[in-house]
Design a protein around this nucleic acid. Sequence first.
DNA 1: CGTGAAACTCAACGCTTGTTGATATAAGTT
DNA 2: AACTTATATCAACAAGCGTTGAGTTTCACG
Lengths: 207, 207
Amino acid sequence: MAKDTISLSAPKRPGRRPGSNQTRQLILNAARGRFSEDGYAGTTIRGIASDAGVDSSLVMQFFGSKEDLFGAVMLITPHALSRFAEAFDGPEAGVGERVARAFLGIWEGDPADSEPLLAMLRGAMGNEQAATQLREFLEARITELPAARRDDKGESALRIALASSMLVGVTVGRRIVRVPALANGSAEALIHLLAPALQSILGDPDR
Amino acid sequence: MAKDTISLSAPKRPGRRPGSNQTRQLILNAARGRFSEDGYAGTTIRGIASDAGVDSSLVMQFFGSKEDLFGAVMLITPHALSRFAEAFDGPEAGVGERVARAFLGIWEGDPADSEPLLAMLRGAMGNEQAATQLREFLEARITELPAARRDDKGESALRIALASSMLVGVTVGRRIVRVPALANGSAEALIHLLAPALQSILGDPDR
DNA sequence: CGTGAAACTCAACGCTTGTTGATATAAGTT
DNA sequence: AACTTATATCAACAAGCGTTGAGTTTCACG
C-alpha cells in the first residue's frame, strides 16, 4: 500500500508529472472540501492548492479565477438534482415523507452529491454569486410545478419555497451549526417528525 | 442649515472631538450592519471604520480585536430573547402559531433586535465562534424546557431543535438568499402556513 | 526524433488585511 | 492651572491574498 518515496518530503520539481492526469479533479475535490467547510471568503486558493498538493498558480491555470473555481464547485450533480425533482413531483399523498426522505438521503449518501450543496449554502451567506445560484436552485423546484397549480396566485410557489427553506434550515442545524440534538439524531427519527410538517405545507392546497 | 466648512471634505484632525461621546455606539452600529450583511470573513475593520466615519485604529482601541467586536455585535437584546422564551413556553395548544408569530415579529420590528441574529446566522457559516454562539442560543430553548418533558429520551429536545432550525431556514430564505416568494410574501401568509407545521412538530408529543 | 502543446513550479507583483505605536486634542479631576 | 485619562488620527508593520509571467518537464503527434 505504501510505495517507498511517493510524496513524503517530495522535492517538488517543476515540470509535468509522469503519467497521471487527474490533477484537475484532485484540485476540484480539494476546493469542494474547503468551500463547503469555510465559505467563499474564508477559503483561499493557496489552501486549496496545498490540500491538493500542487502550486497555487496551477489552480489558477486550470480554473481561471477564484470566482470561476467556486462556480465549478457549486455545480450540482444530475443525480442529486433528479432526486429532488422527483420527490416534489408525484402524487400529493405522501409528498411530505417523500421530500423529507429524498432530502435527508442526499446528505447520508455520496459526498460528491452533498458537498456542492453545502458549498452553495455556506457560500450563499457572503457571496452574491452563491446566493443567486441557491435562489435559482430553489426557484427551479417552483417553476417545475405541474401546470394545474401554476395559477393559484402564488400560493403553491409560497408553499414550495417555504418547505425548501425549512429543509435548508435543517441542514444548517445539522451540518453547519451542528446542534447536538439534530446532528446526533437518526435520519429516521427526523423523517418521522419532518414528514407530517412538510405534508401540512405541501399537501391539501384547498383547505 | 449648512455651516460653511462643517464635515464635507472634513480635514479630519486628530484629537478628541468636542462634546459628544457616542462614537462607540456608532461603531457598534456600523459593525452590526457590516457583519450582518457580509458575514465574518467578508467584513473588514476598515470598512466598519469608514461607515462609522472614524479611523480603523479607533475601532481596535474600543473593541480590542475583530473577534471581540464580532462578539459584541452578536449580543442578542434581552427583548428579543424574552420573546422567544415566552413563545416556546406556555400552553401546548397554539404553540405553533405563537412561535411562528414571535419569530417573524422579530424580523419585522426594530433592526437592533434582528441584526445581531442576522450577524450570528451569517457568521455561523464560516466562523466557529458564531456557530458556537448560535448553537448555544438554540440549545437554550431546549434547556429551558418545562421539567415535565425533560426526560423523554431527547424527544422534546429533538422537536425543539428541529422547529428552531426550520425557522432559521425561513430566515435564510427570506433575508439572506431572498427567494422571491418568501421575501415578498406577507408575514401573515407565512404564519398561516408555518403555524400548523410547527404545531405538528411541537404539539402532541404523545402520538 | 522533433516540435508544439499541456502540466507543472517558482518568484514576484500590487493590494488588502488586522494590528500597533506614536502623537494630538479634549474632558475630567484635583 | 496642572495632570491624568479618554478620544481621536496618522503612518507603518508583517502577513496573507489573488493573480501573473517566466521557466522546466513530460506528453502526444507528426
